[in-house]
Amino acid sequence: MRVLHLLINGDRVTVAAPEHWTLLEVLRYELGLTGSKQGCDKGDCGACTVLVDGKPVLACLTLAALCEERAVTTIEGLLPAHVKSGGSGPDPVQAAFDECGALQCGFCQPGMMLSARALLDRNACPTRTEIQDALAGNLCRCTGYTQIVEAVELAVAKHCGVAPRRPGSARPRGRSRPPPRRA
C-alpha cells in the first residue's frame, strides 16, 4: 500500500491504495468515482478518459502513483468546475449532449465529454474535422457518432454565438448511402 496525495476535481485527496494500481482503479474502487468507465482496460476504447493537467489521458494505463502533484479531472468534476467558474448547471458540453440525445447506452459518454471539454479548452471554435480528430480515441458502439459530433458542434455554436448546423448533417464522412432499392 502507498499513501497518495492526489488532486481530484479541485479537491486535495489523501488515499491509501496498492502501489501497482492504475488511476482508474483508485478513482473507482477507493474514491467511488465510478463515472470513469472500465471498458477494455488496455488502452483501446477511451471509456476511462480523464483529464490530467487539462489533457485527456487513459486512466486505465496511468499509474496512480505517478499522478501526485497533477490535477485530475473526471466527469464528476465538470459540473462543479463550471459552476465555480461562474456558470450555472452542467458544463455546456454536458448540456449539449443532453439536448442532442448524444447517447444510447452511455458507457462512452464520460470519456467523450472529457475529450470534447479538453478540445474546447484549447480551441473554442473547432471545425468538424477537428472535433472528429479530438474524439477519435473514444469508441462508441451504439450511436454511430452522428449525434455526438452534433452535440459538440452545438456546444461550439452556443459558445461562439452562431447557429448550429441542422440536425443530421454531421453524418460520418466517406461512403454515401446505397441508393434505395426499387420494387
Binding site: V57, L58, T62, A136
Partner: peptide, 9 residues
C-alpha cells in the same frame, strides 16, 4: 500513432 489520448501519454 494510435489516438489522441495515447499520443498525449
Amino acid at each position: 500513432v494510435a489516438g489522441p489520448q495515447l499520443r498525449t501519454m
